[in-house]
Structure formats: structure tokens, C-alpha cells
Design a protein around this nucleic acid. Structure first.
Lengths: 332, 332
DNA sequence: GGTATTTTTGGCAGCGCTGCCAATTTTCGG
DNA sequence: CCGAAAATTGGCAGCGCTGCCAAAAATACC
């Protein structure tokens, strides 16, 4: 037996059942235009009786603007993006918008392909991570006429709307904090930077700041693949095997930093007296560790919320800097 | 200045530019039906030149089935759901399906409302968490004629397809493991169970198993709100303040368990000799802690993958049990 | 009571694309 | 070189709904 019921009740059938015209049903359902209370009741009764579910595909095609918002994000493993989606989806749902998404795995050419596929749904807006995109992506988005929101990175030219903060500033402040604390022999443990350009920006600004204070980075360990707690642990282990006199390590993010933290716990390396640890993101888990993680808290959920609000409100092009917060913690 | 370019190039325009009929363009673009190589080139050239982007809204309306898959998930904070989305989205993208989602916050009536909204997009399938739904939701899904996939819980009757494992079995095995290890004075720390029915099922089976072995649960601490590391830490602290002679604690999931683990580290409570800790989910982070977390690893990504494959392949109704794996770890 | 308004309502032409079918062109076999 | 079969191609009717416009009904005003 096949599964094709598609009890497809149409607006026309509702109209007939209610004894009114199609447009009247449409008006009642969208609560738009004028109609009498009596008509309203008859229509609603028919809708109820027939179990009518409006067809948004048809509705969107017939009207001008769609209520779809497309997210093209690098990853779902990195909690950053679910957090952004979470912030955005609450606002979008309130405004009867619908979120659509696809995942690029940090691959710019995949981003281009997926953005193209998204555009085919004629979304009201496309939301992307960061401001680095292929030429093709930029051209396509420009030509599309739909709103474009670039998230989580303000270090570059925005196509239309940008919401987030400066990763370069985050890298700088992290370095400044460690220097202020008196650390001078600093190392870095990070994940694949070519793919995660935002982590790359933090790292390069971090290094520049160290250089400017005559305390250049002493050692680094870059692990292939995505950031993870295990990679952070492994990275610190490797770094310490090669370099014995470090007094602080900057990690590409909190996942990695937690790995480093666990490595120190396991190896009984005193934190921060023997080795300081500094992360990035300000995950909740970093606040519950025996020693709160020193890190920078980023406004991930708020980024999603604001982005969604700007789209819903059809705001003019702008860059919104939500800033970030340095959490002193107890590991640095 | 307003932003309404909508350079809406239509198929008809491409057809005219290429000097062919509309249906020919449609065939070439979908690589469906027959056409000559020469025609193909002319069409592609025109597409390129005009920057044509097909309109999937129109395409979906005109053809019968849509290539949308709708996810109605409880949360994006709980990494479980991003993991499922991740597994599914890879498979869906390969097959040119598009994922749409909305978040219920574990509220069944919100689930009903969101499922209704999703149905309006006439998706090929709706994916939901668990098998507990309101009567209205069930009725609506049944009537919709679209595929329904229930994820991550096999303890109940499936509407159509179900992919996951038994939460009751997970609770049972967790209890059996602790008992086998010799723990007899067992407590529980969990988050709001009314909302997260799967955690509730694990807990009740856990308790039944303890009862069956004459080692009933000694104490429990249920925290309002979502699961989090901080809530786990707080929960264990409270539990221990009231009950001093516990030898093991079962947590509603790994986030909570990690909080408990951190509490023990901070309070210098020896694990597992003084207190054993057992979680649920098998998050990666639990493998990188100084002592690997004892837990049950659930096939979250695989659940998403399989679910997507079944939908793409239009498989018949079935329940797929992916099982789970007990990780002995070192905390119990 | 009659006319001017205002409120409700229905009809119908698309939105851009796909599916069906018939027309046209190409290829093949003898 | 001709008819038949196969490969291409174009035309056009919808898919289900919204937006526009004019008709009809209700209400207001003098």
C-alpha cells in the first residue's frame, strides 16, 4: 500500500463549503481586509470541519515577499551556531517567519552552492557567518535583491546588515589581559584556522598585540580538524612536550581551552600559577568548572535575536556591534 | 532608497533569450527528459548570462511533492538536537532536500502549533522528537498525508517511521550497571522531567530496576529549568547537603553529570571511591575529562542520518532501533 | 425616503514552474 | 530515397493562493 493521502483541502473547497467567495476565505484566514463577524464564523467553521491547512507554498508564490529566512552556517557541532539559530528562531517564530538552514562545513565553495540553493526559495533574508565569502557568493547575493545578514564578525565590509562584534578586538583584548596579568611566555593551541577565519583573525591580532609588547608568541600547536575538547587536551599535551617554559596558553575557543584545562588537572599542573589558560566564547560550562575559565564571552544568542529583528523590521543596512565581555575567571 | 531589486529573471525570459520553449529550459535545468547537447549549451549560456535562479516555490507548487523536510525539535541548547540535525542535514543536502526547523521549548502545545505551521509548507516529512504528542498533533499529522518520523525514542507506538532507541532500556541498563558495580545507596539529580519526557522515562525505568534489586533510590534532586552543567553542579551540592551517605548518583544527562563531576573536583570528593557519577548521552567532552565519564552513548548523529535516508528513500513505516552503548568510563 | 458613503464580497488574472500531449525534427533500416 | 521509429521540442493548462477591481449590501446623512 502506498502513502499518498494528501487530503489536500483547498481554499476553494473551504469557500464552497462556507458558501462564500475564495477571497473572503483568504481575508478571514489572514485577518486582513474587512469582513463581517458572521462571515468569519462561517469560514472558521468550514475550516475546522474540513481540516483545512493553508498552503504557504501557493501563498508565497502568489504574494510578493516570502517569510522564509535562510541560514547558511558553517557547522552545527560548534555550539556557537545553534546558539545563534536559537536566538533568531524565537524572534522569527513570533513574527510568523520560517527558518531554513544548511551547513557548509566551513567550506567557502560549499557556502556558495548552498547559498544558491537557498536563494531558489526566494527567502526574505539570507544569514551567513562572517564576512568572507567567495566572489561568486557575493555577486549572487547582491543580485538576489534579498536581505543579507552577516553574523559574528565585524572585521570587514558588510554586504548589507552585519551583526556581531570584532574578532580582532577579541584577540587583542585577550592578549592585553594576559600581558597585564604578567604572563610573558605565551603559547597557542588552535584548530584548523584556514577554515575558521574568525578564529584566524583572533589569533593574528593576538600575536600582533604580543609582538607590540615585546613578548612574541613562543610556541603554537595547530590541530587539523574541528575544535573539540579532546583536540584541546591533545594540543596542550603536544605543546608542553615541546616547550617547557610557557606560562600561559591561549586557545582558539572554550572547547579547546577546556581540553587544556583537563590536561592540567590530569597532569597536576597548577592553574594558573604554573600555567594560565585563556579561551574564547564564554560557554556556560566554563563557569561551572572548579576554577571558572578565563575567557571572552560572546553574545551569540543576542546576535541571532538582533539579526532576526532587523530582518523582520526591514531595517536599513547597518553594522551592529554587540561587543563582548572579558571574563577574568580563575585560570589566568 | 528602498531595496527591492528582485531582478526576478524568470524561466520564460531564459527561454526567450535562448530561443527555445519554456519546457525545454525546465528539462535542461532539471536534467530530466530528453534534449540535445546543443540545446543544453544554449540554455546554460542564457542562464549564465541572465543570472537566472530557478524559483523553487513555483516549482514545488507546480509539481506534486516538495523537497522540504520539517524538523520540530524541543531545543537547540541541548546538543542532542543539533547533533540530529547535523546527521540529517548532510543526507538531505546530498539529495537536494531542504531542512526547515522550529523549536518547541519542550512544550507539547507549542509543538502542535509549530507542526501545523510546518504542514503549511507541505513538507515531504515532519520529524519530531519522541513519541508523545498531543491528540491534535497526531490527528493533524495523520491527516496531512506526509511522512512522519519520530526521533530518539522507541518506547511507544510510532505514527509512521521511528528512529532511535529505548530510553527505558537506557535507564534500566544504567541502574543495572551501577548495581553490578556494587553501589547500593543511589541518588538522582535531574532537570525538569515533565517537559523532557525521555529523561522521565529513563528515570522511571532506572528506579524500577533499583526497586527490583532491593536498592531503591535514596534521594533525588530535581531542578527546574533546562539541563545544564551549572544545574548539575548545584543539584549535586544540594543533594549532598541533605543526604550524606550516597555512594552513587545518576544524572539526567551528561551536562548535568559534568556539573556533578566538577562539584566533586572542587570539594575534593573522591570519584568513584567516595561517590560514583553516571550520566547519559556520551558527549565527547566526557571522554576528555581526567577521569572519563561513565555514561551511555546515544547515536544522535546516526539517528538523524537514518531518519533522513528513510525519508529520501520513501521507506515503508518502520521502527529502527539504533541501540546505545554503555561506556564504563572511570567515574562509576 | 433618497442619495452618498462605507463596508463586505466575489470574480478572476496572474505568481513561475511542471506535466502532459501533440507537433516537429532526426535517425534508422531497407 | 522513403516510411517508421525515436528523439526533441513547444504550447498550454493548471498547482493553490493573493491582489486588484468592481459589484452588492449595509449604513449614514439630509
Amino acid at each position: 500500500m502506498e502513502f499518498k493521502h494528501q487530503a489536500t483541502v483547498t481554499l476553494a473547497e473551504v469557500a464552497q463549503a462556507a458558501g462564500v467567495g475564495e477571497s473572503t476565505v483568504s481575508r478571514v484566514l489572514r485577518n486582513h481586509g474587512s469582513f463581517s463577524g458572521k462571515t468569519r464564523e462561517r469560514v472558521m467553521a468550514a475550516v475546522e470541519r474540513l481540516g483545512y491547512v493553508p498552503n504557504r507554498i501557493a501563498g508565497t508564490l502568489a504574494s510578493t515577499g516570502s517569510r522564509l529566512v535562510a541560514f547558511v552556517i558553517p557547522s552545527l557541532s560548534n555550539i556557537v551556531f545553534p546558539d545563534v539559530l536559537r536566538g533568531a528562531s524565537a524572534v522569527l517564530e513570533e513574527n510568523r517567519y520560517q527558518a531554513v538552514f544548511s551547513v557548509t562545513d566551513y567550506d567557502p565553495s560549499k557556502e556558495e552552492a548552498l547559498a544558491a540553493a537557498m536563494l531558489a526559495w526566494r527567502p526574505a533574508a539570507v544569514m551567513l557567518a562572517g564576512c568572507e565569502h567567495t566572489e561568486g557568493t557575493v555577486k549572487m547575493l547582491r543580485a538576489s535583491g534579498c536581505r543579507v545578514v552577516e553574523l559574528l564578525d565585524l572585521d570587514g565590509d558588510a554586504l548589507d546588515i552585519a551583526v556581531g562584534f570584532s574578532n580582532r578586538a577579541a584577540g587583542r583584548e585577550s592578549a592585553a589581559f594576559l600581558l597585564k596579568r604578567g604572563y610573558r611566555r605565551i603559547g597557542y593551541v588552535g584548530h584548523d584556522l584556514n577554515r575558521d577565519t574568525r578564529a584566524g583573525k583572533r589569533f593574528s591580532s593576538f600575536c600582533e598585540t604580543l609582538d607590540a609588547h615585546d613578548a612574541p608568541l613562543i610556541a603554537r600547536e595547530i590541530l587539523a580538524g574541528a575544535s573539540s575538547v579532546e583536540n584541546g587536551r591533545l594540543g596542550l599535551e603536544r605543546l608542553l612536550a615541546r616547550t617547557t617554559d610557557l606560562d600561559a596558553v591561549y586557545f582558539s575557543n572554550d572547547d579547546m581551552a577546556l581540553g587544556g584545562y583537563f590536561h592540567c588537572l590530569a597532569e597536576r599542573i597548577a592553574i594558573p600559577s604554573k600555567l594560565a589558560i585563556f579561551g574564547y566564547n564564554g560557554l556556560d560550562i566554563g563557569r561551572a568548572t572548579p576554577q571558572p575559565l578565563s575567557t571572552i564571552r560572546t553574545p551569540r544568542v543576542a546576535t541571532g535575536q538582533i539579526a532576526a529583528q532587523l530582518v523582520v523590521g526591514n531595517a536599513p543596512p547597518q553594522a551592529v556591534d554587540l561587543g563582548f565581555e572579558l571574563i577574568e575567571g580563575a585560570t589566568a
